[in-house]
Design a protein around this nucleic acid. Structure first.
Lengths: 144, 144
DNA sequence: TAAATAAATTAGCCAAGGCTAATTTTCATG
DNA sequence: CATGAAAATTAGCCTTGGCTAATTTATTTA
């Protein structure tokens, strides 16, 4: 039985998400890579990595990189999915991309599965309904 | 010229929002009321109130209550509006109310004005388009 | 108006997550 | 294979925003 209810902090989620991205894009995620990618100090990353390791989210081989455990990966995947759905959503609405990034990064840790799914369905509908999107964007412009 | 760019922390926003609600509903917001309403200790509230006062968001009269300054009120109003828009949005999508509350409280501090406006417009469209809402809800049920 | 109660404050603590500076460990290369 | 560079870690510090327990201050009420 996989432990499930264990809510992780935003910070933990951010780290796991980023670690996975790094592994996907560069093939590895060392302390120094994570620090660079998150824009924080190596020392801070070392600390957090200790914690992630202790809590069973990653396995760490010095100078070699991190590997996500099954549990770590499942969290990373979930948060990655949230990220994609929310990005999609705001993009569909025509929000400027710099803002999309910031907003999504802020929001992604605070959505229940239900809300996520609802937004996902909404995106499906919006995607297949360009006129609707046009109306929404028009209505935005007007209300400004 | 009103100072505008000064981003406040989530905690500050939460306090101001709650203070305004209390003033609206009970007519006053004392330390003890805020503590009760936010579910935290009076001591913590005293601390934060000192800060809010020092930063010019509230004026405090002991045993009498807090008053929002112009700046405090404008922040409170803005965050209140975010709260309403997001609540609306998730309600429209049919998310269960307990979750709506939690999600909104988490998200409301992380949305740019642009995203907010886009979601607002979207809500307008959704409200006037019950079939669309039905389709979305159906599609949710199916994807479960 | 004095005593009881309620509100507020103070002092001292904690955890999360950041930071810098200094040090250690490993890697890569001449 | 020695050494310089890169990566990692350690030590010690900071801020935010919580907490409890003890104390003070104001308000209410008998």
């Amino acid at each position: 039985m996989t432990k499930t209810g264990n809510r992780s902090s935003s910070a933990v989620e951010d780290y796991l998400e980023r670690i996975q991205e790094l592994i996907e894009t560069k093939g590895y995620a060392r302390v120094v890579d994570i620090a660079g990618s998150l824009g924080i100090s190596q020392a801070s990353v070392t600390n957090m990595v200790k914690r992630l390791d202790a809590e069973g989210f990653v396995r760490h081989e010095k100078y070699r990189g991190l590997v996500l455990t099954e549990e770590g990966e499942s969290i990373a995947k979930a948060i990655g999915k949230r990220h994609r759905i929310l990005t999609d959503f705001l993009n569909l609405l025509g929000v400027a991309s710099a803002e999309v990034e910031r907003d999504v990064e802020g929001m992604e840790h605070h959505l229940s599965a239900d809300s996520l799914e609802a937004i996902e369905s909404l995106c499906r509908e919006l995607s297949s309904n360009p006129e609707l999107l046009l109306r929404i964007k028009r209505s935005e412009r007007e209300s400004k």
